[in-house]
């Protein structure tokens, strides 16, 4: 196995202190995955800050970081919508508050 990860950094904004969430999308590669997730984010008022995606062994993995301060729905509902979108498209989508990653990996 070649552990090559070629992350395509499409957008990169400066570090700030706004509340963010991490959306992870894993599934079989198909046309329009980013478009669907981005559209769902836009509908909820989540501002996309960063997208990294790769295709490894036909599997599509995307990590999206979004700003959730201006959400037009409660965060828990946003999580539900993302997970529902995953189920509809045969993808595994999880949205989690960024703090869990910071807690675990930042001293």
């Amino acid at each position: 196995m070649i552990p090559v990860r070629q992350w395509k950094k499409t957008i990169r904004l400066e570090e700030d202190t706004t509340m963010k969430a991490v959306i992870s999308v894993v599934g079989k590669d198909a046309v329009g995955i980013i478009a669907k997730v981005s559209a769902a984010c836009a509908a909820c008022g989540a501002n996309i800050l960063d997208i990294s995606q790769t295709v490894l062994h036909e599997y599509f993995t995307m990590i999206m970081i979004v700003e959730i301060e201006q959400l037009n729905v409660p965060f828990s509902q946003f999580i539900d919508r993302m997970e529902a979108l995953g189920r509809e498209n045969d993808l595994e989508i999880h949205a989690m508050h960024e703090d869990i990653f910071n807690a675990m990996h930042k001293i």
């Binding site: 992350w7 991490v22 992870s24 990653f101 910071n102 675990m104």
Partner: peptide
């Protein structure tokens, strides 16, 4: 912002 490797490790 958390690094991608860290995010993947946590998810795993």
């Amino acid at each position: 912002m958390p690094a991608i490797e860290d995010i993947l490790e946590t998810l795993n």
